[in-house]
Design a protein around this nucleic acid. Structure first.
Lengths: 223, 223
DNA sequence: TCAACTGGATTGTCAGACATTCTTTCAATT
DNA sequence: AATTGAAAGAATGTCTGACAATCCAGTTGA
């Protein structure tokens, strides 16, 4: 019996549920960047006590999704364009590597999953449902990162992408961005399906660079 | 006046101090990987209340330095060699990139700082003081990462290096490792001083790979 | 107009409490 | 003898309530 298999079933603690709910609230734009999070209000809304909430907030702080200034309390992290650029650059580094590795080692069934997620994004892109576009695109990357063979790469990437969720949401709603994004993702998929690492890397790099450019445009156009 | 300059002075909260103390305790090996951290004991030792401690623990959990299993409490994260390998690989990715960028843009005064830190490591290497070796080597990388022009790269790198502190401590005490490490770091320094990015990248890659190999040896030799 | 002040709101921190869950021990049964 | 089951003790998850320190905004006074 493989000793590494962890069969422990973890009860979902209030802290975990709170982190997840708040994270989603931030991703969905319910809490906008810069807005303050008042503890007493959140406690009431979530129906939990202050100690539990504060634990959850510390987790989110460590993820850099919120900032906690002593004696002023938590607020949703506001990313400057410089910081966002820095994140896109590191994301490029990681994602390109992951795409390359993925092309060399993805198993057949996962490749089909990847194709399905691409189709799902295609549908979302046609539907103009911004939220669905962001979600399905995220699924697509997830599969690539999950199959790159390096869980740390995956973990770090997820953390970074989470921090630019705000930009991703905006840029995806840019005129024509979803369609060109689809074309880029198709290129990535085909390179991976063909088992061609260098092509996958190239396509992936192109995609991230264009995503960054789109994010920048979306920032400049409507403040 | 530059509006980005944040002049706010933050009072150091108990939570922050606790995180720092516990982090140091883990780095120094005072709390060994896998060992349980009992809340009541830590509260007594640190002289703080349980809510404050638990907030600090959540921060450390998010940094992956400890793990908190529901109803079992926190324990110091125990890294398998596979996970450590994955971290070394991502570290390579980041550090190589940073060294390359650093070579192209480091200012004169920082270069001198880098040289000083190299000298400090040289001294530590001669002294056989393991703890000083780890510290001074970390300073050396810090300066490189701080001058790569990408704060996110720096941040992610710091987080990863923190997680393999245990391995670093062990491998540095390996016979002759400090000396060869010194030679590798000198190569990196010279490439950066010469403003030669590709040489810096190459030297940096060599260094990380050898560090990984040394860590592996140290794991195999003594349990 | 500007500076100082004051009051309310919010956070940082603590103490204490209790139900739930885990761990260990020990007895009982097969 | 080995395994199962029960019980006690310890540790965690969570809540309530409290209070001092700090921040913020609006008011007052110069």
């Amino acid at each position: 019996m493989p000793s590494e298999l962890n069969l422990r079933i973890s009860p979902r603690t209030i802290q975990q549920q709170t982190v997840e709910k708040l994270r989603l609230a931030i991703f969905s734009g319910m809490f906008k960047p810069g807005s303050r999070l008042v503890e007493s209000q959140l406690c009431a809304q979530l129906g939990i006590s202050r100690p539990s909430l504060r634990e959850a907030l510390r987790s989110l702080e460590a993820e850099r999704l919120i900032e906690i200034v002593p004696n002023r309390g938590p607020s949703v992290t506001e990313l400057s364009w410089e910081e966002a650029t820095a994140i896109y650059e590191v994301r490029e580094l990681l994602e390109v590597e992951a795409a390359g590795r993925c092309a060399a080692r993805i198993p057949e069934d996962q490749l089909r999953e990847l194709e399905n997620s691409l189709l799902a994004f295609e549908e979302a892109a046609a539907s103009r449902d911004g939220s669905a576009q962001v979600t399905t695109a995220a699924d697509f990357y997830s599969i690539i990162l999950a199959n790159c063979g390096n869980p740390i790469l995956e973990e770090v990437h997820r953390g970074l992408v989470a921090r630019i969720s705000f930009f991703r949401g905006r840029s995806m709603s840019l005129e024509g961005r979803a369609q060109s994004s689809l074309a880029e993702m198709r290129d990535i998929f085909e390179a991976i399906a063909a088992g061609n690492p260098s092509a996958a890397r190239k396509a992936s790099r192109t995609h991230v660079l264009k995503a960054k450019a789109a994010a920048k445009r979306s920032m400049e156009s409507r403040t």
